[in-house]
């Protein structure tokens, strides 16, 4: 009568203790992993941040204008190249200008 109870009461704490130990090691491992991931995430964010600044630097309108002039056969939009559907009833003038047959 005494013996099974004794085994139970000694065995149970032992199992619980071992389980707790394992879990705590596991948690510590996960925490390390989390910290590493967070450090990596911040490093990535920082990198994105720097790249954003570089993107903005490379997209200076002054630079784009210079590059477009050198490499592209395009000119800034002239007023007569712009038209709105609000000003141009569909079909009416397009027809007369030969866009629509």
């Amino acid at each position: 009568m005494i013996r099974p109870a004794l085994i139970l009461w000694i065995g149970l704490p032992a199992i619980v203790t071992i389980a707790l130990l394992l879990v705590s090691y596991q948690v510590k491992g996960l925490e390390n992993e989390l910290a590493a991931l967070e450090r990596a995430a911040i490093a990535q964010q920082e990198e994105i941040h720097v790249l954003n600044a570089e993107w903005s630097f490379l997209n200076r309108p002054e630079r784009l204008a210079r590059l477009a002039e050198r490499h592209l056969d395009l000119a800034p939009v002239a007023p007569k190249q712009m038209i709105s559907f609000a000003y141009e009833p569909l079909g009416q003038n397009l027809e007369s200008q030969g866009y629509v047959k």
């Binding site: 800034p76 939009v77 002239a78 007023p79 007569k80 190249q81 712009m82 038209i83 709105s84 609000a86 000003y87 003038n93 007369s96």
Partner: peptide, 14 residues
């Protein structure tokens, strides 16, 4: 130069 960028439509009657 800025009017086309700012979406101001020109008045160019036919």
């Amino acid at each position: 130069q800025i009017a086309p960028m700012l979406g101001v439509m020109p008045l160019l009657p036919s």
